[in-house]
Design a protein around this nucleic acid. Structure first.
Length: 819
DNA sequence: AGCACGCCGACT
DNA sequence: GTCGGCGTGCTC
């Protein structure tokens, strides 16, 4: 050992928008606690921030200029909160999606672990003197510091509530009257304890005789087998707290406090039952994947299973198998609507070994579920998009259900695609990943073509139930005034109801009318903050913007010409509900869309109404189109197949067919065959024909050919740059400059045999959103590597564009929405 | 992202 | 003269 003390440095990703990792000295006393994957508190400039330790090193990187290394201030976790493989994944995501690593890591953590220190201002000795003596100074301090406040010895602190107060404090700080301190936020929702009362000894009769409440309490405990949660006791006995404490003093009961794990509040319970035997087809699928789970080898599988073919049972079997070999499993599902049913199935099979992860969980429940996973108390995670970061140790299998679903793509901040991230995570870990769908994405089908993914299929519905019969209704042939329900659809509904079956009517548009028009001057009512028309909602008689949430009363007269000639145009689910109510006065209607099911709890109630046949006609948007299993729905009516086609995107065809086939799949899932009627003004459109033929794979082959000839994804790769700013001219100018940078980068790369094409720039389809003007530009490359090189160059060059600081730039790799 | 610095116009 | 606006650069 030499005399020179060896130092340890930690590489840290701060939880802020900094794109660089920073290095800090680790003081001796923290040496044992600082390890990769734990959160630490570090000084950053004049601030303090939380960051994650990425690595430890003996030699620090050379620093430029006079920058000195600062030291880690505190360690926040006793054990790593981000497992090594997730950390590795985050690093990859940061590079691939061009997003700061620290922010990615932070967003993988549950709410209780995302906290940052709070800034407070503490009165200094000088400040106190001023407060006591000077009239002028007192005026400036008094809004926050009371001179008459009793001396408790505690330093007086205050925190600014807005920008103006922050400025005021900064001035006080310059005077030396207050100083800045950082405190840890006190909101402690991180743990919940469950108090349990346990009966030690039944009190003697003469003791019991004296109080009815006491007798009741003892009785409740005995009935519950000797112990009961205080919370439950309270529900049956208002004085439970008093008696429990009193009996505790007398030694008849004891109180136990245990950490409670908050669970998903909407889980349905199903009666226990034996797992059903697999069909031959299902066995073949399980047999193909099983060995990869056991041997731990990377392999993507695409499971093409028509709706109702029993994919879920395969997932359950494979997960079971994964657990049997001592590994854990991750199952991704699209957004909540369908997950409650799936959750119940998983809960029945895996009980407390299941952790769930979806938007219906409270922040506290999120913390608990997450902890359960890290601590290894649960071994299966069932969750939505962000569960792809689930910190499961010994992960052995990833399932992505309905892999084509658009909700796997996050459309704000970090714009990642959970299916793609799942594939990368599986590759890093060397484990199989199963993508399941009745309507796989073209991207996944291409993976199969290229030999990167194994194709498995289930072509029969379970119990040989027939696929529904599909009929296309040409709305151009409907005579007379416009009707929401065509004659054939109306007749079919009538017959279905008469037979005592249920109907699903699908329309991918909520509200009553899509816009309000003045018949005199032609004005369409627009959102004052966005360049979209307002939707009329009859439910509460308002006009609403579906993009920013703006709400207004319906005006009496046209705001432009003053005429009383406003009429609603277009129709949404509310209007369909009204029409059905008029046509079938006796029918019980359940409307399910984001308005009627504003809360997850309400959604579950509505779904249960349908499931338990308390409703005859279900009218809904996307929410009901996917995944649900309603046994008694025999008729599905698509009110307008044309809405999805209007998407201005090369994927419109793919999305339309997927959506329509998914909806069609809701019909005939019980023992009666199903029928599907599709209303459209474009009956000859190739997507509608594909739906009529119910031949999804053939549609894909044709669509892939078209994509190839047009050089669209999945044959090429896109990146979308979206610029937005409050000032229209400034935003346009920023885009001009940015475009120039892109052009230069593309020209340079062309010289290096890296071809990149630019599309645009153009105003974004929603030109104004939440008061910001938006323009976008697409870059196209033929390989991922080329796209990476292009975007890296563009971003490096555009850092020098000062105008970009005054607008917001979003980089959306593999964009799915062009809005 | 914050936060500081530094440079300008407009007020007590 | 300062206050506050915004432009610019940096954070180990």
């Amino acid at each position: 050992m030499t005399a020179a003390a060896s130092e340890t440095y930690a590489e840290i990703a701060p939880f802020t928008a900094i794109s660089k990792n920073l290095h800090y000295r680790v003081p001796g006393e923290l040496l044992h606690d600082v390890q990769p994957g734990v959160r630490v508190l570090v000084p950053l400039g004049r601030r303090e921030t939380v960051g994650l330790v990425l690595a430890l090193q003996g030699t620090p990187p050379p620093l430029e200029g006079s920058i000195r290394f600062k030291s880690v201030k505190a360690v926040l976790d006793p054990r790593p909160v981000v497992p090594g493989d997730v950390l590795h994944l985050c690093r990859w995501i940061s590079r691939y999606y061009f997003y700061p690593l620290g922010e990615i890591i932070r967003s993988t953590l549950p709410p209780g672990f995302q906290l940052q220190p709070e800034v407070r201002y503490r009165l200094t000795g000088a400040g106190k003197a001023v407060l006591e003596r000077e009239r002028r100074g007192r005026k400036r301090l008094e809004p926050w510091f009371d001179p008459g406040f009793p001396e408790t010895g505690e330093p007086m602190e205050a925190c600014p509530r807005d920008d103006i107060e922050t400025r005021a404090f900064k001035r006080l700080e310059r005077e030396g009257w207050v100083e800045r301190v950082y405190v840890w936020p006190s909101s402690d929702l991180r743990q919940k304890t469950l108090k349990t009362v346990r009966l030690v000894e039944t009190p003697p009769d003469d003791r019991l005789r004296r109080s009815a409440h006491l007798r009741r309490l003892v009785r409740l405990l005995e009935d519950a087998g000797g112990a009961l949660a205080l919370r439950d006791l309270r529900r049956s006995l208002k004085t439970a707290d008093y008696w429990a404490r009193r009996l505790q003093r007398e030694g008849f009961v004891c109180m136990e406090a245990a950490r409670e794990i908050r669970e998903s509040p909407y889980a349905q319970t199903l009666p226990a039952c034996e797992p059903p035997a697999l069909t031959t087809d299902q066995q073949a699928v399980v047999g193909a994947i099983g060995p990869f789970i056991e041997n731990g080898r990377f392999q993507p599988f695409l499971l093409y299973g028509v709706t109702g073919s029993g994919k879920t049972e395969i997932y359950l079997h494979l997960v079971q198998r994964t657990l049997e070999v001592g590994k854990t499993a991750l199952v991704l599902v699209p957004e909540i609507a369908l997950s409650t049913q799936l959750e119940a199935l998983f809960r029945r099979r895996f009980g407390s070994r299941l952790a769930v992860w979806h938007s219906g969980l409270s922040p506290g429940a999120r913390d608990d579920q997450w902890r359960k996973i890290v601590d290894g108390e649960s071994s299966v995670t069932l969750g939505v998009r962000s569960a792809v970061f689930s910190p499961l140790p010994r992960l052995g299998l990833i399932v992505v259900d309905e892999e084509h679903d658009g909700s796997y793509k996050q459309e704000d901040r970090l714009r990642y695609h959970a299916r793609d991230v799942a594939l990368v995570r599986a590759r890093f870990l060397g484990i199989p990943v199963l993508l399941g769908s009745a309507t796989p994405s073209l991207q996944s089908i291409r993976l199969v073509h290229r030999g990167r993914c194994r194709f498995l299929s289930l072509l029969q519905r379970i119990e040989d139930r027939p696929l529904p019969r599909i009929e296309i209704i040409d709305m151009r042939r409907e005579r007379g005034p416009f009707r929401v329900l065509s004659r054939p659809l109306q007749a079919a509904v009538e017959k279905t109801l008469a037979d005592g079956n249920q109907v699903l009517l699908f329309l991918n548009r909520r509200g009553f009318a899509t816009f309000y028009l003045c018949r005199v001057c032609g004005t369409v009512h627009q959102c004052p903050h966005c360049s979209v028309s307002l939707t009329y909602h009859q439910q509460d008689d308002t006009l609403r913007c579906h993009y920013c949430g703006y709400e207004a009363d319906v005006p009496e007269a046209c705001p432009r010409c003053g005429e009383h000639a406003l009429i609603p145009f277009g129709f949404g689910t509310e209007r369909v509900a009204e029409e059905v109510g008029k046509l079938f006065p006796g029918a019980r209607i359940a409307r399910i869309d984001r308005d009627s099911a504003s809360h997850p709890k309400r959604l579950v109630e509505l779904l249960n109404d349908v499931r338990h046949r308390r409703a005859d006609v279900l009218i809904g948007t996307q929410m009901v189109a996917k995944g649900h299993d309603f046994e008694n729905i025999t008729l599905v009516g698509v009110i307008s197949a044309d809405t999805a086609l209007q998407i201005a995107d090369f994927r419109a065809g793919e999305i339309t067919v997927q959506l329509l086939l998914q909806v069609a799949g809701r019909a005939g899932r019980g023992d009666q065959p199903g029928e599907v009627l599709v209303q459209t003004f474009n009956p000859d459109h190739y997507t509608i024909q594909a739906v009529r033929n119910m031949d999804y794979l053939r549609f894909c082959e044709e669509e892939l050919k078209a994509r190839e000839s047009l050089q669209y994804p999945p044959f090429t790769r896109f990146v979308r740059f979206l610029l937005s700013g409050a000032d229209e001219t400034l935003t346009r100018e920023a885009m001009d400059r940015f475009h120039a940078v892109c052009r230069a980068a593309a020209d340079e790369l062309k010289e290096e045999n890296v071809p990149v094409a630019l599309l645009g720039p153009a105003p974004a389809p929603i030109y104004r959103l939440k008061n910001r003007y938006r323009r976008h530009l697409y870059g196209k490359a033929w390989t991922n590597r080329h796209l990476q090189a292009f975007v890296e160059r563009v971003l490096a060059e555009s850092r020098r564009l000062s105008i970009l600081r005054r607008v917001a730039l979003v980089v959306d790799r593999d964009p799915h929405s062009g809005l």
